[in-house]
Amino acid sequence: MQLQRIHHVAIICSDYQRSKHFYVQILGLTIVQETYRAERDSYKLDLAVGDQYQIELFSFPNPPARVSQPEARGLRHLAFEVSDLNSCLAHLEQHQVSYEPVRIDELTNKRFTFFADPDGLPLELYEK
C-alpha cells in the first residue's frame, strides 16, 4: 500500500451556518461545493485549503458530542501551516477568536498556537 497524500479532513458541526461562517469568513477557506442532502437533512460543504487539501464540513441532526481537547486520546487537532503567525493572530483577534499563548516547537524551533472552532475542535496555526 502506498498512501500518496491526505485527501480530506471531515468535520461534523453542531451549527452549520455558524461553522460555515467561521471556516469561510474568518479562516478564509474557499468553497468548492455546497450540497444539501434532504434524505439526511444534512449539508456537506467542501472547502479548499490552499491547493492540496480539502475540509468537508458536515451537518447532521443532533450529532453526539465528542471530547475535543488537544491532549485527548484520538485525533489530536487539525493544524494549518502559515507564513506569518503574527498577522494570523491579529486576524483572529479582530474576529474575537481567542487563542493560547504562542509556543515554540522544541524539535523545529517553529512557533505555533492553538485555538478552537465554534464546536471546540482544536485547531493549530504552525508557522512555516
Rank of each mutant, 00 (worst) to 15 (best):
M1N: 09
Q2D: 01
L3N: 07
I6T: 02
H7T: 03
H8M: 03
I12G: 08
C13V: 08
C13A: 01
S14G: 15
R18C: 01
R18K: 11
R18S: 04
S19T: 08
S19C: 07
K20H: 10
F22D: 03
F22P: 01
F22G: 01
Y23Q: 04
Y23H: 06
Q25V: 03
Q25E: 15
Q25H: 14
I26Y: 02
L29C: 05
T30F: 11
I31Q: 14
Q33P: 08
E34N: 10
E34L: 08
E34P: 12
T35G: 00
Y36C: 00
Y36D: 00
Y36R: 09
R37E: 03
E39G: 01
R40Y: 13
D41T: 11
S42R: 14
S42Q: 15
Y43Q: 03
Y43W: 15
K44H: 13
D46Q: 15
A48R: 15
V49A: 08
G50P: 02
D51C: 08
Q52K: 15
Q52T: 06
Q54M: 15
I55A: 11
I55M: 09
E56G: 04
E56R: 13
E56C: 07
L57W: 09
L57G: 02
L57H: 12
L57A: 01
F58Q: 03
F58R: 11
S59Y: 10
S59N: 06
F60P: 05
F60R: 11
P61Q: 02
N62D: 14
N62C: 09
P63Y: 04
P63M: 05
V67N: 13
S68K: 14
S68P: 07
S68N: 14
Q69I: 13
Q69D: 12
Q69A: 10
E71V: 12
A72M: 03
R73Q: 14
R73T: 14
R76A: 13
H77M: 03
H77I: 01
H77C: 04
L78E: 05
A79R: 12
F80C: 12
E81Q: 12
V82E: 02
S83A: 14
D84K: 10
L85N: 06
L85C: 05
N86Q: 13
C88R: 08
C88Q: 11
C88D: 09
A90Y: 04
A90L: 12
A90P: 04
H91I: 10
E93F: 02
E93N: 10
E93S: 13
Q94I: 04
Q94E: 14
H95Q: 11
H95L: 07
Q96S: 14
S98D: 14
S98Y: 10
Y99S: 07
Y99C: 05
E100V: 00
V102A: 08
V102W: 02
V102P: 00
V102T: 07
R103V: 07
R103A: 12
D105S: 09
D105Q: 10
N109S: 13
K110D: 00
K110C: 08
F114R: 13
P118N: 03
D119C: 04
G120H: 08
L121I: 09
L123P: 14
E124S: 05
E124F: 03
Y126E: 03
E127K: 11
E127G: 07
K128N: 15
K128E: 08
K128R: 15
